Amino acid sequence: MKSKPVLTQSDVARVLDAARAEATANGWAVTLAVADDGGHLLALERLDGCAPVGAYIATEKARTSALGRRESKGYEDMVNKGRFAFLSAPLSGLLEGGVPIVVEGQVVGAIGVSGVKPEQDAQVAKAGASVFA
């Protein structure tokens, strides 16, 4: 039987702290969502000033990234390059801003961020995911 690392609440807090610090340093009002490797929400934090829809979008970006084991931007790129059939996939966070959290070479979860420009969402998400790099 194989063993794998899993995210603890302490780990999730570290991810949120790093992502929040990046968002705050840039003055960005975003929502942060952390999911486990099955895409199940572990934490959600909507910073002051972020639109309510950010909570839904960030959660879906995290879920998509966790289940797909890749950045959600990859799916957005596929659709933008004409692979419209992928829109029927059972994922709804097909936008940039979801980043997998990798520990010991294994995806243990993901962070999704929503609230600013796509590349800024991704920047914040990468800051959160990088605590284990």
Rank of each mutant, 00 (worst) to 15 (best):
P52D: 10
P52W: 12
P52G: 07
V53P: 03
V53L: 11
G54L: 07
I57S: 03
I57A: 01
E60H: 14
E60N: 14
T64R: 02
S65D: 01
S65G: 02
S65Y: 00
A66S: 08
A66E: 00
L67M: 06
G68P: 00
G68R: 06
G68C: 11
G68T: 11
R69W: 01
R70C: 11
S72L: 03
S72I: 05
S72V: 04
K73T: 06
K73R: 15
G74W: 09
G74C: 09
G74H: 13
Y75I: 14
E76L: 06
E76P: 02
D77N: 10
V79H: 00
N80V: 02
N80S: 11
K81V: 03
K81G: 09
R83N: 12
F84A: 11
A85G: 15
F86L: 15
F86P: 09
F86V: 14
L87Q: 12
L87I: 12
S88K: 14
S88V: 13
S88T: 15
A89V: 07
P90Y: 01
S92P: 01
S92Y: 10
G93I: 00
G93L: 00
L95F: 15
L95V: 12
L95W: 15
E96D: 04
G97W: 01
G97N: 01
G97H: 03
V99Y: 08
I101N: 01
I101M: 10
I101L: 14
V102T: 12
V103P: 03
E104W: 05
E104Y: 07
E104R: 13
E104D: 15
G105M: 08
G105N: 06
Q106F: 07
V107T: 12
G109D: 04
G109K: 03
G109N: 04
I111D: 04
G112W: 04
V113A: 04
V113T: 07
G115S: 06
G115F: 08
G115Y: 05
G115N: 08
V116W: 13
V116N: 13
K117F: 10
P118I: 02
P118Q: 01
Q120N: 13
Q120T: 09
D121K: 02
Q123I: 09
Q123V: 10
Q123R: 15
V124H: 04
V124M: 09
K126G: 01
A127D: 04
A127E: 05
A127W: 09
G128W: 07
A129R: 06
